[in-house]
């Protein structure tokens, strides 16, 4: 019954978000029907675009999982953007430095990304466990430290040949793109990242529902004091949870900077970090919900360019819709009240 309720709340939030979007389309003097038609066509029209939708969804799945995983332990990871950036930086550094064969280089890059992101998140985790520093504030600070770290490290060590603001391009041996997959999807951006993401979804679902570690982490999320009384090491759980969340965000970094793109840019905090919060909320913090929500947001992001080309609607509509969906998810308590009232009424009638 609970899954049903979450699903209904998510759908209501999406519908409200889409309604807000159509209102804005009217402001832009375009027909919402055409707008959404082109938006969805742009993401699903042919095999190439479906590939792009999945490629856009890949980092979102991972950042969404990152936020959701920490949330299960009662922690709010706003730092996915910074962890993702550091993961991307570590992967890019390996990919540009070593000329190993692909089957060795790519796994090393993936490992480095997970390690970098994990360490970046371990700091706020440790600060929370040891000094009770609120993780929301510390992860925001870590985001900006990551931003400036990349800002100075990339031009100093990995400067691109044309632009000051980006790193050199990764060679094809250091890319998650593989020929057969690119061919299968007609030259789309899709890459091995999607398989990584799906394997991780399964893994996280397993950890959360079938292992002692997952049980302990969730218990800490439900009630910190009761867990402590039951003999769970709360501080250890907090650090582990943040570190795993950071590793997931770091993986998002490698799939984005070495899969979807082929270099890392400076001066940008990746929007996927914040979109991950939306994904996690909409997916009700469950791994499979995250997968669905990320693919939906990937679709919006992929379709917006096509919609912009066919109508006069600015592409920012996709971000506005996503932001509105978060707002309605945050206020879903209103709908939850209505839902409970409705159920009571139906129950009373019986």
């Amino acid at each position: 019954m609970k899954i049903n309720k979450d699903l209904i709340l998510a759908i209501v939030a999406v519908i409200l978000g889409l309604m807000a979007g159509s209102l804005l389309m009217l402001v832009a003097k375009s027909s919402p029907v055409d707008g959404y038609l082109y938006l969805f066509q742009g993401g699903l029209m042919n095999i190439e675009r479906i590939g792009n939708t999945l490629a856009t969804a890949t980092p979102l799945i991972l950042t969404g999982l990152s936020v959701a995983f920490a949330f299960r332990t009662g922690l709010f990871n706003i730092g996915a953007a910074g962890q993702m950036l550091i993961g991307g930086l570590c992967a890019t550094a390996i990919g540009l430095t070593y000329a190993w064969p692909k089957p060795m280089l790519v796994p090393m890059m993936v490992g480095a990304a997970a390690l970098g992101g994990g360490l970046w998140a371990a700091v706020p985790g440790w600060l929370k466990a040891r000094f009770n520093v609120h993780e929301v504030v510390s992860t925001i600070m870590m985001n900006w430290i990551a931003y400036w770290t990349v800002y100075y490290t990339v031009p100093a060590y990995f400067k691109g040949s044309f632009m000051e603001t980006e790193s050199q391009r990764l060679s094809q041996y250091a890319s998650l793109k593989v020929q057969w997959l690119t061919d299968l999807f007609n030259d789309s951006y899709i890459n091995l990242g999607i398989f990584i993401a799906i394997i991780i979804v399964i893994l996280i679902a397993f950890v959360l529902t079938r292992t002692t570690l997952g049980y302990e982490l969730k218990a800490v999320g439900f009630n910190r004091h009761a867990s402590e009384a039951a003999g769970i090491d709360v501080n250890r759980s907090i650090i582990i949870s943040m570190t795993i969340a950071g590793m997931l965000a770091g993986l998002a970094g490698v799939t984005f900077y070495a899969g979807y793109a082929s270099n890392i840019q400076i001066g940008i905090l990746p929007s996927q970090g914040f979109d991950g919060i939306a994904v996690s909320l909409l997916g009700a913090n469950s791994p499979w919900g995250v997968l669905g929500a990320a693919v939906f947001f990937g679709l919006l992001h992929t379709g917006k360019g096509f919609m912009n080309a066919m109508t006069s609607i600015p592409p920012e509509i996709a971000d506005t819709i996503i932001a509105t969906i978060i707002y309605f998810s945050a206020t879903s308590i209103l709908m939850q009240r209505l839902w409970d009232k409705l159920r009571k009424k139906i129950g009373g009638a019986k």
């Binding site: 706003i78 929301v136 919060i277 920012e316 707002y327 945050a330």
Partner: peptide
């Protein structure tokens, strides 16, 4: 949740004003 609402405010503001 005040943090989530705050994030939504940040995202709505950025996207809506650029739009």
């Amino acid at each position: 949740d005040q943090v989530i609402s705050g994030i939504a405010i940040n995202m709505i503001a950025g996207a809506l004003t650029t739009f």
